[in-house]
């Protein structure tokens, strides 16, 4: 793995009221890398992911995607001011986000879900967007479901459509927020399979997940969070061995 960092999280601080949920979190992800974030619930994994595409504001530090700060721009005297809504929206075009609960648009068919961003945001020609959406649905194994509404799809199918919807924007970076946690166990595999293929094709991915099998086999690097901070970081071979830090071993012992 080489190349410039696509994502740079630099000493990010975030609090909900008096409760600090992220303190001093720094993380770099290079092009093509797959990073899996693990850790106990409430450790700040999801919040960190949501900060990266500015679904949450940050209270300190800096997040850059492709070298550009996300959500903020330099203000007077070196302070950071929040970006305009239009610019924030533009920055998000390059950051795909897959939600735990899919959040497909229920009033649209699968193919319409995938087309919406390209047509309404990127201004892609409708026929062209549709052709590409059908390709993407085929890639996630749902070519035959393109005219189905989300309510007619299983959870695993919905999540694969959601992945296709994010990919349709041709993002530089894909964020996955516990993509299999809301699924029945028998549907986890089909979603993991799609994510593994994406990782193999060189997509840059940051995945918050409890799927240790995926973390072990697909991750280039594993980040362990606890209490709003990164407590350990390294290749899966080390994280899943006795060489890992004490808190990592403690967490892994609890979940296995």
């Amino acid at each position: 793995m080489s190349g410039a960092p696509i994502l740079r999280v630099d000493r990010v601080h975030k609090a909900f009221g008096a409760l600090a949920v992220l303190h001093d979190v720094s993380l770099e992800v290079r092009r093509g890398e797959t990073v899996v974030i693990i850790g106990p619930s409430g450790s700040g994994k999801t919040t960190l992911l949501r900060c990266i595409n500015h679904l949450e504001r940050i209270d300190g530090g800096r997040i850059e995607v492709n070298g550009h700060p996300v959500g903020y721009r330099p203000g007077r005297g070196g302070s950071l001011r929040e970006e305009t809504p239009r610019n924030i929206a533009r920055q998000r075009e390059d950051i795909g986000f897959v939600f735990q609960r899919f959040n497909l648009f229920p009033h649209m068919t699968a193919v319409e879900n995938v087309c919406l961003g390209p047509v309404r945001v990127r201004g892609v020609d409708r026929a062209e967007a549709r052709r590409r959406a059908e390709e993407l649905l085929e890639r996630v194994g749902l070519a035959d479901k393109r005219d189905a509404h989300p309510s007619q799809l299983s959870g695993g199918q919905q999540q694969r459509v959601a992945i296709a919807r994010a990919l349709a924007m041709r993002p530089a970076l894909m964020l996955f927020d516990e993509p299999t946690s809301a699924l029945d166990p028998e549907m986890v595999g089909e979603v993991i399979e799609v994510m593994r293929e994406l990782a193999d094709e060189g997509m840059t991915m940051v995945v918050v997940s409890h799927e240790m099998a995926f973390a072990k086999t697909a991750a280039d690097r594993i980040v362990v969070m606890d209490d709003g901070a990164i407590v350990d970081e390294g290749p899966p071979e080390r994280i899943f061995s006795d060489a890992a830090g004490a808190r990592t071993r403690e967490f892994l012992a609890r979940i296995v």
Binding site: A89, F99, R101, L104, F105, V121, R165
Partner: peptide, 15 residues
């Protein structure tokens, strides 16, 4: 989550 999903594909709040 619908608003968030729409924002995540680069839509402004108005869109």
């Amino acid at each position: 989550g619908q608003m968030e999903a729409a924002e995540s594909i680069g839509m402004t709040r108005g869109r």
